[in-house]
Design a protein around this nucleic acid. Structure first.
Lengths: 207, 207
DNA sequence: TTTCTTGTCTAACGAACGTTAGGTAGGGTG
DNA sequence: CACCCTACCTAACGTTCGTTAGACAAGAAA
């Protein structure tokens, strides 16, 4: 067990890990094209050419970052499931399960380095080769949310658009939420409250 | 009156307008850095150097597009206000006002060329000079939403995070919503329903 | 001690980039 | 007619890009 909120297997060499870290935060800040290998290398303290000892291309580097971002989200989801095993069928229990997963997704976004946030902001304009490679992983994560929401709501409630709005809204928070200034728990609570009643069509139990 | 849903003053010459159109859709597709002036010029059918007859730099071109995107949103908001003048204080009336503005924002996103969508996706990684120039315009638009939501809800309801989730969720829809396949009205209704009860804390009146 | 591996370096390649200078065709205006 | 302005062009500039080739130092393995 490490001290990090979500356990990501880090078989990377220190150098490789450092490149990943720096690249992810630069991709997040400036976008994939604008962040050049020379700038990344500069910040790591090596030469641009040395990056090629760890990655076969810039696209390969991006793909590794996107995968890592998805891995963080996926493990956060799994961890949230673990904390809510044994939850019952009451509305309050259902709401808690949603809250746990919302909190987990937001934590993945803000508490595990720039990987998840970089994924969210970079995926859209990533080179087609990279995007195509990542799509299945993304779909799998979305499917877990689909199952969760279907499980939480009545059978006749269409959860599709609600899921997209929920994930879209949470991901969009990277553009304005500053985890060093605001509380992640507060944000998670706001998001949960906002979506719980809209999802179920019933008033939120916690005012 | 033109046939376009929102009237944007188009004092542009045809050539300039065409450059703006093409550039906006390429910026939207690939991002600001990845969309080169040569590719833009190619698609317009001119040489890259000819763009400099209409814009002083690539950044200038981006700024024009971002401004146009904001103008489209702003006029959509104004138009929505016009259609709801005389709305009363009943919950149903309030909900209609929210619905009208949601619909207007989404229409701006999808029915007026790529300008608004390009703004949403490009702003974050735009060069600092451009971003700084646009920020005041953006803030003004957000302020209109703040006023609206404050007007729609009880005095003690904090609308800040809800507004950010609402706009963030709507804007994020550009990543998955295809206006040629789905109905904009349906999307607007889903968004409105999703947020209305969360905002007011009361069940949604339309099941 | 020799050998191999790992991680970095310097140097350079060709391609693409934003941008500038200067020229040209054509329509409107004196 | 001469003039000029608009909208484009060709050609080129210096810079930066991703990427490759090849050398070198340090440590582990033999």
């Amino acid at each position: 067990m490490t001290t990090s909120p979500v356990d990501v297997p880090t078989t990377d060499s220190p150098a490789r890990a450092r490149i990943l870290d720096v690249a992810a935060s630069l991709f997040l800040e400036q976008g994939y094209e604008a962040a050049s290998l020379r700038r990344i290398a500069d910040e790591v303290g090596i030469q641009a050419a040395s990056i090629y000892h760890h990655f076969t291309s810039k696209e390969d580097l991006l793909e590794a970052i996107l995968r890592r971002g998805m891995a963080v989200m996926d493990e956060a989801f799994t961890a949230a499931e673990a904390t809510t095993t044994g939850a019952g069928e009451s509305q309050a229990d259902r709401r808690s399960r949603l809250a746990a997963h919302v909190r987990a997704h937001l934590a993945a976004l803000y508490e595990n380095g720039p990987f998840t946030a970089a994924h969210v902001t970079t995926f859209r304009t990533a080179p087609a080769v990279v995007r195509d490679a990542i799509v299945p992983v993304r779909d799998a994560y979305e499917a877990r949310w689909t199952d969760l929401l279907n499980d939480l709501t009545a059978a006749d409630v269409p959860t599709g658009p609600a899921r997209l709005m929920l994930l879209g809204g949470m991901n969009a928070s990277v553009e304005w939420f500053d985890p060093t200034r605001g509380s992640l728990d507060d944000l998670a609570e706001v998001v949960t409250r906002q979506f719980w009643s809209g999802l179920t069509g019933h008033p939120d139990p916690t005012p």
